[in-house]
Design a protein around this nucleic acid. Structure first.
Lengths: 182, 182
DNA sequence: ACCTGAACACCGTTCAAGT
DNA sequence: ACCTGAACACCGTTCAAGT
């Protein structure tokens, strides 16, 4: 059901994933899909959470900084494997399915072990997520369209992502910003 | 010419900005637009660079950290004023018009004064841009759709943006990551 | 429950022709 | 240069009806 949507997406891109195209591949009429999914948006939401299922969560005993780093790296590469879905992640603010929820909890746990809780933890989590999805959006869109300007190779962007992630984690854990009201 | 596009966008959103709708507002046939702009994508690219024209560049004598901070803050609020264009910024990697170029140069100048040059400066600039656009995307999309989950007020997101920006700049300027090969 | 036929109300873009 | 009429090749979605 969803699987063929995923496969059609991989073959023909986001613009190529149409309800009509999907229906014809399944050998049914376009409107028959509405017996299985309430709208195209709902279909995409389902696909998004499936991508997050690919992210593996690190050993919770590991140091908080490295734990967070590996979660974000793993998320980044999961996103890169589904380039066409990344723009949708941004538009929908990172999916709200069960997998998204699970990852959010793991992140909170690591932040808490680094002594970051409350509002500050929420902020840090949001910053990390936004940064990761944003960079994935950059990497995937740059892969899709080749410009005269030179497309910037993917491994360079991955290194760039890692640098920024380190900066971010350094800033978060060092406790910059906001006076020590905690 | 472009002005009406901007105004139509403000009124009816990105989905409401169609070539046909734009044409009818101008009192011409849909295809007449193609005498003025080569495609809808080109039209949007023009709109994007216009938004970047709203960003004001700080006094170049100011301290690098605060200079960069104010550029990114100003960019963030310029983006927030045109919520419907933000997704396009991500898809097109932040526009490539003259205004985009100008801002990029100013950022490089500040980074250089902070002792950051070469690859590292490119990485830092990209990280800052991605972070800013990504957060703007979050803020605008959360403003557009109200969910049961509670939409997160805009000023909270703006503070959140500022916190993350501080963390990022702390990390960048403190010289974390990559061993001191410079 | 799940499907079909037919339709509604749209899209972006192109082509030939006019002025 | 800038416009029109007409068309091409599509969209997502709904409604009534069938099994």
């Amino acid at each position: 059901v969803l699987k063929t949507a995923e496969q059609l997406l991989a073959e023909r891109g986001l613009a190529g994933l149409t309800m009509r195209g999907l229906a014809s591949r399944l050998g049914v009429a376009p409107n028959a899909l509405y017996s299985h999914v309430s709208s195209k948006t709902a279909l995409i939401d389902d696909l998004l959470d499936e991508v997050l299922g690919l992210v593996d969560t690190p050993d919770p005993e590991v140091e908080p900084g490295t734990g967070l780093e590996s979660i974000m790296r793993s998320s980044f590469s999961a996103l890169l494997e589904h380039p066409d879905l990344v723009p949708s992640f941004l538009a929908r603010q990172g999916a709200r399915g069960p997998n998204a929820h699970r990852l959010g909890e793991v992140m909170f746990a690591f932040l808490a072990r680094a002594g970051i809780t409350g509002t500050r933890a929420e902020e840090a989590r949001r910053v990390l997520i936004v940064y990761t999805i944003g960079f994935a959006a950059l990497a995937t869109s740059s892969a899709l369209e080749q410009d005269a300007a030179g497309p910037v190779p993917e491994d360079e962007l991955t290194r760039n992502f890692a640098s920024g992630l380190t900066w971010l984690l350094t800033g978060i854990i060092s406790g910059a910003g906001r006076p020590p009201s905690v």
